[in-house]
């Protein structure tokens, strides 16, 4: 019994010793506040080092209004000068300047501090566009910087990732936004035929050609409707596939009318926010994707067409 008591006492003493000797080192060398500040400084420096950035901006969670180009010049005095491809219908000025801040919210965040009719055009609620305005952002969470370099931003309201990339050296901001408009101006048709490997599958239509004097006209020229039909096997009310009396599958035609919202670049290309995937059993087209279209100028106006640049198949939209 005496030995047991001694052992217990020694164990208790050892345990206390071990407890008191436990190292209490921090995982990080800096405090949380210092690390937050470092994160803010990192993005602030990136904005200032790049100085002039192209912002690809997608309002609306449903991408109802297309993608829009801003050019932003960040200055060390915390003012940002903004050019906007939609300046033609917003404000008769080339650029507007407003304070910006890189501050901490749920993470590092870029915020345009005071109202700017370009930068807040989509975020402003009003009677014309309703209580959500045009469903835009004015605060953007930093997601990271790629090697390009591109600064990736996230809009909380729209659940969309947007990006800043450097303005090419051969453009001034004014020239860039004008070139973006020009690349849209040259596309005049409102209806095009969807051709895949030379075969017609459907249409690509929009409400109107490019108009830069009203938001509605401008926006509607960016938003196309892709229409095509595909076959799918019928199902009964329980969801089971339907067969005819001879055991052959019974098919039905499904009409697709999908909205495609594009953002435009000066090189006559336009791009979707994310690749579009063709639906249904469409003779090899099913499951194929496309994202970027280039307007190719033909030998005659009627031979101008969009050519898909990033599909395995030869996808064109012709007049």
């Amino acid at each position: 019994m005496k030995h047991i008591t001694n052992i217990v006492a020694l164990l208790a003493a050892t345990l206390l010793l071990a407890t008191s000797c436990r190292s209490d080192d921090s995982i990080f060398e800096e405090s949380a506040a210092e690390r937050i500040q470092q994160g803010l400084d990192f993005y602030e420096k990136a904005l200032l080092d790049g100085q002039t950035w192209i912002m690809e901006y997608f309002p609306s969670e449903d991408l109802k209004y297309g993608g829009w180009i801003y050019v932003l010049t960040f200055n060390a005095d915390h003012n940002v000068r903004a050019w906007f491809e939609g300046e033609t219908f917003v404000d008769d000025q080339n650029y507007l300047e407003t304070p910006y801040a890189v501050e901490y919210s749920t993470g590092p965040m870029l915020k345009f501090v005071n109202f700017n009719s370009f930068l807040h055009y989509f975020a402003m609620p009003n009677y014309e566009h309703g209580y959500q305005g045009l469903e835009g952002e004015y605060e953007f969470s930093f997601l990271g910087i790629t090697a390009e370099p591109e600064i990736l931003l996230y809009g909380i309201k729209t659940d969309k990732t947007m990006k800043l990339r450097l303005l090419p050296g051969d453009y001034t901001p004014e020239e860039y936004v004008e070139a973006v408009r020009e690349s849209q101006r040259i596309v005049r048709p409102t209806t095009l035929k969807l051709m895949v490997n030379g075969k017609e599958y459907g249409t690509l239509t929009r409400a109107n050609a490019f108009q830069d004097d009203t938001f509605e006209g401008y926006m509607q020229s960016k938003v196309w409707t892709l229409s095509y039909n595909y076959r799918q096997q019928q199902t009964d009310p329980t969801g089971a596939p339907v067969y005819d009396d001879e055991g052959n599958p019974v098919y039905e035609e499904v009409a697709v009318n999908d909205r495609l919202s594009f953002i435009h670049y000066p090189d006559n290309t336009m791009k979707l926010y994310e690749p579009y995937t063709f639906k249904g059993e469409l003779e090899g087209l099913s499951g194929q994707t496309m994202q970027t279209l280039e307007w190719k100028i033909g030998t005659a106006p009627l031979s101008d067409k969009f050519v898909c640049l990033d599909s395995f198949l030869e996808i064109e939209f012709v007049q």
Binding site: N6, A12, A13, L16, S20, A32, E34, I36, Q37
Partner: peptide
Amino acid sequence: FKPYLLAALCASTLLVSCFKEELNPTSVIV
């Protein structure tokens, strides 16, 4: 039992208290 256990406990307590916890004079709030 008593002296042995007491000695062990005292030694442990001493060791526990011998580490000096100095506060960093710099605030974590920047």
